[in-house]
Design a protein around this nucleic acid. Structure first.
Length: 110
DNA sequence: CTAGTGACGTGCC
DNA sequence: GGGCACGCCACTA
């Protein structure tokens, strides 16, 4: 049983500060799996709630919550959790990604 | 083995 | 903004 990938994803996600956001691609890049954003989604999907992992702080590059029927409502839970943290969520699921993007030491160069 | 699908991303029209 | 194509990898039929 090798949760190596999953665990790396969860650890990276756990480092996201409260009230900030990160994208799937960003997490993938952090764990050295550039281009494997989709696998990050799979890793989060394997999470069992409740969890210590702030999975709700991970959104897609479009700055929106990834809505899907297969999530059975977890996408709406994500919306609730984000608003609880002070992150405004648009009626269309859009988020202020540009302003709330997590930067772990990255320099501000746009 | 192949084909399709998915909590994704980038590029191009 | 929307739509299409391709690449990525795990899972399922």
């Amino acid at each position: 049983m090798e949760h190596s990938f999953d665990r790396r994803v969860w650890l990276a996600v756990s480092r996201i500060p409260r009230g900030q956001l990160a994208t799937y691609g960003q997490i993938a890049d952090l764990i050295g799996a550039y281009g494997c954003a989709r696998q990050v989604g799979w890793a989060l999907r394997r999470l069992t709630l409740p969890t210590d992992v702030p999975w709700h702080r991970v959104v897609n590059a479009k700055g929106r919550i990834s809505m899907s029927l297969s999530r059975e409502g977890s996408d709406w839970i994500q919306r609730e959790l984000l608003m609880e943290e002070g992150v405004p969520v648009d009626a269309e699921g859009r988020l202020p990604l540009r302003a709330r993007l997590w930067r772990q030491g990255a320099m501000s160069g746009n």
